[in-house]
Each structure stands twice: as C-alpha cells, then as structure tokens.
Simulated scan of single mutants.
Amino acid sequence: MLLTDQPVLDPRVYRDGMARYAGHVQIVTTRLAGVLRGVTVTAACSVSDAPPTVLVCLNGSNRNNDIFEQSRVFALNSLAAHHQPLAAAFAGMGGVPSQERFGLGAWRELVTGAPVLEDAAISFDCELMEVKRMSTHFVMFGAVKAMHFGPTAPSLIYLDRGFRAL
C-alpha cells in the first residue's frame, strides 16, 4: 500500500506504520516530594555528546506526566531482554499501581535523585533543560549529569506491538 498526497494521514494508519518501527525499550523515571513516576517509552535518543544531551517524548495528555516538568530531573533507563515484565508494568499493563511498580526492580540514586535501575543496560541521570510541546506529546531535553552502566545483556526492543530481544 502506497500512501502519498494525502491531505491528512489517518492516525490509525500512522500507528500501524510506527508498529513496524523497532524501538529500544526504556523506562523514564523521576521523583518529586516523595512521589515516584516511571513510564515505559521507545521515543528517546541521544541529541549531542558535547554537552551530553538526550531527549525523551512523553504523552502530554496524561496529567500524571506533569511531574517530569515539575521535578526538573529524570533518568532514562535502557532495558535488557530480562526486563520485559518491568517494561510491561511501567507501560500500565497488568494493572500494577504506579507506586508499586518500583518494587519490581532495584533502584538507586546518582546525582539528580531520579530513580536509576540498578541492572539497566545503561542509565542516564539528567537535569531537565527544556520542554517542547508538540501535538499530543511533549519532548524533554535533558543534560546528562551522571551515567550508570549495568551488566551487558541482550537489549529489549518493541516491534510489531510486542517485546523482542536483540
């Protein structure tokens, strides 16, 4: 199927196309006044190495995500294949309450106080530099203040609406 010259692309068709786009699964976390928040994402990447900067896209229509902008810190935790149950929980699958999700893993703090997953492949501890709102989502740009290297293991990716190991 070839889609060109469409005045408006159907969001359902777009989502079907994005399902074929493999993404590395990560959990972005923050903490503010004793409240923890974590969300499974695939829309995150490096922006620059000078200075070290990453970006993360989050659903702006979920008011629970406002805490990321309020806290001004976040950690981007890249998951390994064995983290699939953790990724599912932080994606809201299985009905695990938000605060209880953190009990499914071992967490630590680095510089910013955002929760860092002890056995993540790599975690980037960030201070929020800027937020850009775009349609239904917002993009957070983070200055990397510290990193934590976990054990080497196959990566967890999301493709065709399911988790896969790479």
Rank of each mutant, 00 (worst) to 15 (best):
L86P: 03
L86W: 01
L2T: 11
M134V: 15
D125T: 07
D66P: 00
G103R: 12
L166I: 12
S135E: 15
Y158F: 15
L156V: 04
F149A: 15
V96H: 02
P154I: 12
A106D: 14
Y14T: 11
F68H: 07
R164I: 00
N64T: 15
T40W: 05
A146R: 08
M18G: 04
Q70R: 15
V73N: 07
G113N: 11
A50E: 12
G105C: 02
N64M: 13
G94K: 02
Q6L: 15
E118R: 10
V25I: 13
W107I: 03
L128P: 03
P11M: 12
D160W: 08
A146Q: 07
Q99M: 09
K132P: 00
N59V: 05
D5M: 09
R20Q: 11
L3P: 00
L86I: 04
V116R: 05
V116F: 08
Y21I: 05
D125N: 08
F163W: 05
A80D: 07
F138L: 11
L76F: 02
P115H: 00
P154V: 11
R72Y: 09
G38S: 04
V56H: 08
D49H: 09
W107L: 03
S48D: 13
A50N: 13
A22I: 11
S135P: 08
T30C: 07
P52Y: 02
S46A: 14
V139D: 06
S46Q: 14
M147N: 06
L159I: 06
E118S: 12
G105Y: 01
Q6C: 09
T53A: 07
S98D: 13
R15E: 03
W107C: 01
L36Q: 10
A106F: 05
F138W: 13
G23S: 15
A120T: 07
D160H: 13
A80S: 14
L55C: 02
V144L: 04
V35H: 13
Q99D: 07
A120N: 05
I67W: 06
R63W: 11
S78K: 08
G103Y: 01
